[in-house]
Design a protein around this nucleic acid. Structure first.
Lengths: 127, 127
DNA sequence: GTCGCTGCTGGAGTGCACTCCAGGTCAAGG
DNA sequence: CCTTGACCTGGAGTGCACTCCAGCAGCGAC
């Protein structure tokens, strides 16, 4: 087989081996990762590609539960593309809302930083 | 007094009354909120302004622990402005990194969405 | 053949940020 | 008076997403 070990997989996708096992147990993957004769996991290219997509979804704040639903849809095969698309669209919208909110709050923080910088500048001048 | 009740405060800052009590107990506020004769909290304008700043920090992902450190600095009074500024700068940087990462991952998701939309378009055409 | 390493499983533990609850106080309304 | 409702306190409980652990198996190196 051409698969890689869980340690290598963890390295390439940027997760811990524990997290990879956890994702698999929790139904976030498309299938149980194939095992070698000794029972060790052997990750193939498609497994790694899927896990990278999962990290995209997770890194943008999609809850585990929704990733599981999406994985289930993909597992079920063709015919439910609209549902998958709806799920991704909904997520995209929530990410955009979150980005807008964070950006707005960041503006307030920047303002605060500006105030402190101004204050410290004055101190420096008077010193 | 001119203060407002915890319910009103919760309403205006967008947190629950429980969370406001929790923040106070946990040292995220500049001082214990003043009480009425009957022991009820009475939030004044400065309290509300500070809590709004706290929500800015929290909404941008600053951990409770760091908010507490920042509150402690402000409580300690003038003289540590550089430290406060450093804390805010560090936070700002981490928020920017996070925004960049989320935006990048969002791009990948958008790409995925594009693929599905294209696929569904073809189906529609052939129908 | 035994040492060390990597991996396996099931399940317990952790950290974070709330959220909920029991049991009680107080003030106003009927 | 008695009830109702908002609030009080200390402390327990919750949900999420991991993270760690004990105990065991296979495998290559020495």
């Amino acid at each position: 087989m051409t698969g890689v070990t869980i340690a290598e997989a963890a390295e390439t996708v940027g997760l811990s081996a524990d997290t990879l096992r956890y994702y698999e147990k929790d139904g976030l993957l498309l299938r149980p990762v194939p095992r070698s004769s000794s029972g060790h996991r052997s990750y193939g290219e498609p497994d790694l590609r899927w896990i990278k997509l999962v990290t995209c979804l997770r890194a943008t704040g999609m809850p585990i539960r929704d990733v599981r639903r999406y994985a289930a849809l993909v597992r079920d095969g063709e015919g439910n593309e609209e549902e998958r698309l709806a799920l991704l669209h909904a997520h995209r919208d929530s990410v955009l809302r979150e980005l807008a909110e964070v950006t707005a709050h960041l503006g307030a923080i920047d303002h605060k930083i500006g105030i402190y910088e101004h204050k410290l500048e004055l101190v420096e001048q008077s010193a």
